Simulated scan of single mutants.
Amino acid sequence: MESSIISVTKQEQAKTAIFLSAVLIVLLVGSVYISQLVFQEISKSFNIDILDARFVFSLSCFFYAISFFIYGPLSDRVSTKLLVLFGCIGTIICLGISGVVDSFKIYLFIMSLTGFFAASVPAALFAYTAKNTVREKLPQAMGVMISASIIGIIFSRSIVAMMTDFWSWQVAFIIYACFIIFACLFIPFGMKQATHNSSNVSIVRTYCDAAKLLLNKKVIIFLMVGFLLFFVYLGLSSFLTFYLKGAPFYLSSTVLGWLNFAGMSAVIGATITGKLSQSISEKKLLIICLLCVSASIGAIGYSSNLFCIALGIFSLFLFVFGIQPIVISMLNQIVPHNSRGAISSLYLLSCLAGGSVGTYILGIVYENLSWSRLNLACIILTLVNVALAMLGMKLIKK
């Protein structure tokens, strides 16, 4: 009787921890993306060119990505709870400061720090999930974690865009920081069991072992798949904002916020492919999803009908994030079990670095060529990604 009560209590604690972890991932991942739909308003506040406003996202995303390599191996040595609190407090302070500064250079620096602090939360929780899930359930478990990240991206962009139209982007950022403060109040109750690795391996050796993973050809190829995927996805998403706010659409930030909710399909994609991978070849699913990403880009870039564009956004999110649990699962099968935390962080780093670089380079394409040429470049890169994925699969077979 007593053992059954203890078992029920542990299950309830686990459910509470999972729910709180999902909420924290939603808010902290979202804090990196909150500027994407309000570039125009930011450019007006600092009296800069609207294309220069993209650096706000590029830098925050870049530091967010790089920080995964710092926090990934560190999560093997430091309590998950400590890393989560560190990231939350740092992000709250940065968002608060960003709403009151009047220098664009200082603002860029603060938003870069936001990316640095925010990364500690998903890095800690992704690594923990990867190391504590059996292989058969790993794609599904990672699908749940990725779903929380996706909701964070969509929720943050949409809610901040709407609040910006109602008040201002400065007020929206400060209110968003208050959301994180509220979530932090539940950390002592929802995360009672801190994860700590008592291994005698030095922190330097931990980072060296993580770096050695980059010597594996199969690892490099699948990291490149993630890099190119997010190069296209985040680069295209950033300039879709400019495209839809201009002729012939002239959409407001609020309408863009509602349109952004089409991206909720990403949750479906991550969940479905996580489950399908248990009955269908992961390799086939990966190729199909990459080809569908290319078709989605075509629907977004070459249609003048808002419904078709919304449908393209829906399918783009569906397949981009449907790919994530597949690739993460394949990477975790390539590396040793004790490197699962590091490889998950390296993959997220490659994806987000791709998004940051893509926003910068595709900005040059958009500025000097045209929207249609930008879309053509994205389609070509996606087809290159298909070839990379096929090469990686051949190496796995050997």
Rank of each mutant, 00 (worst) to 15 (best):
I6S: 14
S7M: 11
Q11L: 13
L20T: 15
S21Y: 06
L24N: 11
V32P: 03
Q40D: 00
I42S: 00
F46C: 00
I48W: 00
F57K: 07
F63L: 08
I92Q: 05
S98W: 00
F109T: 03
L113D: 03
F117C: 01
A119M: 00
A119D: 01
V121C: 05
V121F: 02
L125N: 08
L125C: 11
A130R: 06
K131S: 12
N132P: 06
E136Q: 14
A141W: 01
G152I: 02
I159M: 07
Q170I: 02
Y176I: 03
C184M: 15
M191G: 04
T195A: 14
H196I: 15
N197D: 09
S198F: 10
S202Q: 08
C208I: 10
A210K: 13
V219Y: 07
I220W: 11
V225Q: 05
F227D: 01
F227T: 01
F231V: 11
L234H: 09
L240S: 12
S253L: 03
T254P: 11
V255W: 07
I280D: 04
K284H: 13
F307L: 15
I313S: 09
N332P: 12
I334V: 15
S356A: 14
I364A: 13
V365A: 08
I379H: 06
I380D: 06
M390F: 07
